[in-house]
């Protein structure tokens, strides 16, 4: 009976160790508390150009992450990109006239959606659309514009 007991203890220790490892992966390696895709509410924003914005990119306001990009679609009527933002339920006081921008984190970093709050007393709720958007900056277009301006200044 002694060997059975040892085996039971070892299996118990094994299971415990396995779950400790899982817990470690959940809390320390990833950020479980900041997870929660599927929770919260969805907002829709239409952009003329999303650049290289990816699904699951962060959505932030004042540099704090409020949610993630849930999906990116294309509207064949308006030729615009339709981006669904999943905002965590704690942040339910986003004004209706908020401005959505696509910015790049660092020079080569990934793109994210930054929200600039407006002043409206009404708040956005699930399924609402953010009216004011600014597209992603495309490097070639920026350089093109810069050269064009330079040339104009030179001509004057």
């Amino acid at each position: 009976m002694g060997t059975t007991r040892t085996m039971e203890i070892l299996v118990g220790a094994f299971m415990a160790l396995g779950f400790v490892a899982l817990f470690f992966l959940a809390m320390r390696v990833s950020n479980l508390s900041a997870a929660g895709a599927g929770d919260g509410y969805a907002l829709i924003a239409r952009f003329d150009n999303v650049g290289s914005l990816k699904v699951r990119a962060p959505v932030s306001m004042a540099g704090v992450r409020l949610g993630r990009v849930e999906s990116i679609g294309f509207d064949a009527q308006t030729y615009q990109a339709v981006v669904t933002l999943r905002i965590e339920p704690a942040y339910d006081q986003i004004p209706t006239d908020t401005f959505a921008n696509i910015y790049t984190a660092g020079l080569l970093g990934e793109q994210y959606v930054a929200l600039d709050p407006g002043g409206s007393p009404d708040y956005l709720t699930n399924g609402d659309q953010i009216e004011h958007t600014q597209s992603a900056l495309v490097l070639e277009r920026m350089i093109g514009q810069f050269l064009f301006n330079q040339a104009q200044e030179g001509a004057q």
Partner: peptide, 19 residues
């Protein structure tokens, strides 16, 4: 080391998928 890891790894997307 830890904060970048936590910021970039998603529980559902990475850990759960690994499991």
């Amino acid at each position: 080391f830890w904060s970048q890891m936590q910021a970039k790894l998603d529980f559902r997307g990475d850990v759960v998928n690994g499991v």
